[in-house]
Write a protein that binds this DNA or RNA. Structure first.
Lengths: 264, 264
DNA sequence: TGTACATCAGTGAACGCGCGTTCACTGATGTAC
DNA sequence: TGTACATCAGTGAACGCGCGTTCACTGATGTAC
């Protein structure tokens, strides 16, 4: 009855998963640069060459970890956002922001692998781009929903979409295409202003997370939780959400993170 | 007459510089993980053990490169900002932002070394913290100046500094100390709101730069120059500068970058 | 000005290590008739 | 149900490499008297 998935394929999938699980454990412990096929094989009680039945190279294993990482943070964000009241747009944004940070703090090396530079000369292949946008898709949806509901004010600043008095050096024209693509892929039916502002908020969120994770806040911010809450609230304004209306959302600790299914 | 700097010390300093110059070249080409003492020694026509007369370990050499990196981006930011009219606060902010981005794009691996994760298990030692805040100091000064001149409006959003109606879960209290430290170190005499908002803008700036550099904008933003201009303008609002008043500053290409003194 | 001594930059060999990847092989699992 | 064959996961040895770091040494440069 199983048409072309004999037991072999199931076993193969299982072992592939074991390999990535152990590799992820090594990644968490030593970082991407310290990830060694031979060490992974050792932990599996296998000979190192056996791994080549599953991954053609070290880079391919790294790519699998990158995809898993994007999926993991994407899933964490999805779960946290799904738990919010649909019409609480600020709450949804804060849930997304908190979930991303919480995941990053729990998986710093995985975070560094996907949102930092991935080591010398590593070029992310095409199969990463789907999973890469999973978290962003959740964010885009909430922006679209807020837009549709009329909950958005004008995004905090940014030059007027068209026809301000001669502001235009590089100008909105160049960005109109990019905004259109954002609408097509990830946040349907939002005006240019909102789309571009939202993207800035998104990048800014990861700036906050990276600063915290990579030590830029050492000796600067002591209460990083409180600061993050406040900053995330501030960023809401960049896409026209009423900023600083924080307290609505789930408090940070409660955020469902959705990594329970993970082995590590 | 030279009391304790005989010719020996001068030569020593010179060779130390040669080592870091070549190491920086290797860093630029291969990234931090690919930096090898032996390879550096080879380029110097030295035997690898000779480097240990100058650096006690590979990590110490890396630390020197980190310090140099912070100084280089700091210097670039200083030079760009110094070229602005003192009372053009938005222009000063944009100059700072552009200089940081320009430097990062020109030195991606150095940027990754200092603002990304520095490889497995590397812990930045104390001597990096001075240089680390050099660029931030320029930014802080302009915020302070803008505040002193009365040019700042209320920072875009963020909960009111005190006494909004019961907003307070983690609340401003926890952050008051951090804001005070910011005043002491880097932006004297600005209110909590402004200090915290400015810090958010600062982190956000590096979020934008990292996203661009590490490929998160691939297939998303095509005109990265135009987008950065716009986003930087938007961020100005986070510390109360009139946002979107862009065109004032120097256009991106003109920004003095201040790396001319570099060998590489 | 000249000699005796200390400093210390650079050498060369070695230690001990781990790595990614290839390749011919064995032997178990599954398939076709 | 049973035999002949193909697939393919895992083995074990090897190739070729580069790395960080230590250590006893040589010989030039500088210092003290």
């Amino acid at each position: 009855m199983p048409p072309r998935t004999p037991a072999r394929e199931r076993v193969r999938a299982e072992i592939t998963r074991e390999i990535t699980d152990i590799a992820r454990r090594h990644l968490a412990a030593d970082g991407a640069a310290g990830l060694s096929l031979r060490a992974v094989a050792r932990d599996l009680d296998m000979v190192s060459s056996a791994l080549y039945r599953y991954f053609a190279s070290r880079d391919e294993l790294l790519t699998a970890l990158i995809i898993d990482g994007y999926n993991a943070i994407g899933q964490a964000v999805e779960a946290a956002e799904a738990a919010c009241r649909r019409d609480d747009y600020v709450g949804r944004w804060l849930a997304v922001a908190r979930a991303a940070r919480t995941w990053a703090l729990a998986h710093p090396h995985e975070y560094a692998l996907i949102y930092g530079s991935s080591g010398p000369g590593y070029q992310a292949p095409a199969d990463t781009i789907g999973p890469a946008s999973r978290a962003a898709a959740v964010f885009g949806r909430l922006v679209s929903d807020a837009q549709a509901s009329g909950a958005l004010g004008p995004p905090a600043s940014g030059p007027p979409a068209s026809g301000g008095p001669a502001s235009g050096a590089p100008g909105p024209a160049a960005l109109a295409g990019d905004a259109a693509r954002l609408r097509e892929t990830v946040m349907p039916a939002v005006p240019d202003d909102v789309a571009l502002g939202a993207l800035t908020a998104w990048a800014a969120l990861f700036g906050l997370i990276s600063f915290e994770l990579f030590g830029q806040f050492t000796n600067v911010i002591t209460d990083t939780d409180a600061y993050f809450e406040r900053a995330a609230g501030t960023l809401a304004g960049l896409m026209g959400l009423p900023a600083g209306a924080a307290a609505a959302g789930t408090p940070a600790g409660t955020t469902p993170v959705g990594t329970a299914a993970r082995t590590a």
